[in-house]
Design a protein around this nucleic acid. Structure first.
Lengths: 110, 110
DNA sequence: GTTTATTATCGTAATAATACGATAAAGAAC
DNA sequence: GTTCTTTATCGTATTATTACGATAATAAAC
């Protein structure tokens, strides 16, 4: 019965929530770190570092990709994933904006 | 069979992921905004603003509380919830640190 | 003490996320 | 063309999240 109620919220809230969700698993944070250290962003290097099965890593990569935090090109037996700086910066600044807004709003609550 | 593999990751990754997860739902972002605007942080005011049932809002409040993003005191028929600035700042700075680290690590990947 | 107002918790149902083995797909190496 | 290597997808099982009605709990108001 619990249908998604996401449509009831503000667009920016849903957008920020989606970006945060994309990073809300340690594996996906670790994947971003790993990708940032590699000159060649091949999935195999990620699989070697992340302590999860290949299928699971691929799934996490897909989640990051669909959130726009990484972009990837599939070229036969090698696919190269890269950090998508535009959206990483956007996530960072959206969260910063939220915190700033919270501070500005703040009344004497507590 | 999928037992949690969280223990396989770095402590900081798990910690950041938990904070991000706490904010990865629009309702919980909206709750923080609402609380920031109120001089009296009573749950009822939140329930009136968030378009979800009272039980659901209470559940989201619990999630925010257990992540440490808000703190609350239950005093009979009124409970007052407040933003927990220490941890909100920590979330913000942990994410900023991550982005900075990603930037510093960056090789010529893509 | 009884009623009222407010919030938390319980029970439950539906949906989403997590995890992995097995298999498919696709180009490289032979 | 066959084999090998690498990555994606499928199927499936488990667990977590989301959502809400109903009920309990708690203190104030009467």
């Amino acid at each position: 019965m619990p249908k998604s109620k996401l449509y009831l919220f503000k667009k920016t809230e849903v957008q920020l929530a989606n970006l945060l969700k994309a990073l809300s698993h340690p594996a996906r944070i670790a994947i971003l770190s790993t990708l940032s250290k590699r000159t060649e962003c091949v999935c195999g290097e990620v699989v070697n570092v992340i302590p999860l099965a290949q299928a699971t890593v691929s799934q996490h990569l897909k989640a990051l990709k669909s959130a726009g935090l990484i972009s990837g090109e599939f070229e036969g037996p090698k696919s190269s994933y890269c950090l998508n700086w535009k959206n990483i910066e956007e996530l960072s600044s959206m969260l910063e904006d939220l915190v700033t807004t919270l501070k500005n709003n703040q009344q004497r609550c507590c």
